[in-house]
Computed example of a mutant assay.
Amino acid sequence: MRLFPSLFALFLIVPLVEIYLLIEVGQVIGAPLTILAVVGTALLGAVLTRYQGMVTVTRFYGQLARGELPGFTLFEGACLLVAGALLLTPGFFTDAVGFALLTPPLRAWAYNRLRHRLEVRTWSPPPRDRGGPGSHGGSGSTIEGQFRERDRDQ
């Protein structure tokens, strides 16, 4: 299972990158402006995520009302959820990734890449027996009736 080492590396590397960037930016612009920048990006990200989320929810319900499958819209909603979480996480690296997920062209590109990489398998039941020689009816319906037993001798 290759997922565990990847997640471990992600949870180890991302905070280290964030700490490094916060220290570097803090040395250049100072601690108060660094804190203001982190809080400002979180607020801006929350506003943008909320707006795009409302648009996506409206599009989702419109597609359902028209009988369309909202596959891309659901993917966009998931991207916006991740973007919102990343933008609320303090740090410049997570903010950059979060703002990137807020751009519709990037989401469309990621959706197309993911769609082409996934193989969709469907299952359908085997065809029903439509009757014929040796068949047991096959239609699934019950036929009411009466019967009478006769001896072979008669």
Results as ranks from 00 to 15, higher is better:
residue 88 L to G: 12
residue 35 I to C: 07
residue 107 R to H: 09
residue 28 V to I: 12
residue 92 F to N: 07
residue 95 D to S: 13
residue 10 L to A: 14
residue 47 V to E: 13
residue 145 G to Q: 02
residue 137 G to Y: 01
residue 100 A to C: 12
residue 118 L to N: 12
residue 140 G to Y: 05
residue 61 Y to R: 09
residue 104 P to T: 08
residue 44 L to C: 09
residue 142 T to P: 06
residue 141 S to I: 07
residue 23 I to H: 04
residue 60 F to M: 12
residue 136 H to K: 11
residue 118 L to C: 15
residue 78 A to K: 10
residue 134 G to M: 02
residue 59 R to A: 14
residue 21 L to R: 04
residue 9 A to C: 12
residue 17 V to E: 00
residue 112 N to S: 14
residue 20 Y to R: 10
residue 69 L to K: 12
residue 69 L to Y: 13
residue 25 V to T: 11
residue 15 P to N: 03
residue 103 T to L: 12
residue 34 T to M: 00
residue 153 D to S: 15
residue 45 G to E: 02
residue 107 R to P: 05
residue 104 P to A: 07
residue 16 L to F: 15
residue 59 R to D: 07
residue 109 W to F: 09
residue 97 V to K: 00
residue 109 W to R: 06
residue 24 E to T: 14
residue 147 F to H: 06
residue 124 S to D: 14
residue 29 I to E: 02
residue 6 S to N: 09
residue 66 R to H: 06
residue 14 V to Q: 03
residue 154 Q to C: 09
residue 30 G to D: 00
residue 109 W to L: 06
residue 28 V to E: 08
residue 134 G to S: 03
residue 4 F to D: 06
residue 104 P to R: 02
residue 1 M to N: 09
residue 58 T to Q: 12
residue 52 Q to F: 14
residue 66 R to D: 03
residue 28 V to P: 04
residue 48 L to T: 10
residue 14 V to N: 01
residue 61 Y to N: 07
residue 134 G to W: 01
residue 38 V to L: 01
residue 21 L to F: 15
residue 36 L to I: 07
residue 84 G to D: 01
residue 36 L to K: 09
residue 103 T to E: 11
residue 106 L to D: 13
residue 18 E to F: 14
residue 112 N to G: 12
residue 10 L to C: 11
residue 16 L to K: 05
residue 115 R to D: 14
residue 133 P to T: 08
residue 68 E to I: 06
residue 27 Q to W: 09
residue 40 G to K: 03
residue 118 L to D: 05
residue 99 F to K: 04
residue 24 E to D: 13
residue 68 E to H: 08
residue 58 T to Y: 10
residue 111 Y to T: 14
residue 26 G to M: 00
residue 5 P to D: 08
residue 19 I to R: 04
residue 83 A to D: 00
residue 134 G to C: 04
residue 88 L to M: 13
residue 115 R to C: 13
residue 55 V to K: 08
residue 27 Q to E: 11
residue 15 P to W: 08
residue 35 I to G: 06
residue 38 V to I: 10
residue 134 G to R: 03
residue 108 A to K: 10
residue 25 V to E: 01
residue 81 L to G: 15
residue 76 E to Y: 14
residue 42 A to V: 05
residue 18 E to S: 10
residue 16 L to R: 07
residue 1 M to P: 08
residue 76 E to W: 14
residue 36 L to C: 07
residue 70 P to F: 13
residue 49 T to P: 00
residue 146 Q to Y: 08
residue 75 F to T: 09
residue 86 L to C: 12
residue 95 D to Y: 08
residue 84 G to V: 13
residue 100 A to F: 05
residue 50 R to H: 15
residue 62 G to N: 05
residue 129 D to Y: 09
residue 67 G to M: 01
residue 69 L to N: 12
residue 25 V to M: 04
residue 64 L to K: 04
residue 112 N to Q: 13
residue 118 L to I: 15
residue 113 R to G: 07
residue 97 V to C: 04
residue 31 A to W: 11
residue 2 R to M: 02
residue 149 E to H: 11
residue 48 L to G: 11
residue 66 R to M: 06
residue 101 L to T: 05
residue 54 M to H: 14
residue 73 T to F: 00
residue 32 P to R: 05
residue 81 L to T: 14
residue 48 L to P: 06
residue 78 A to T: 13
residue 104 P to M: 00
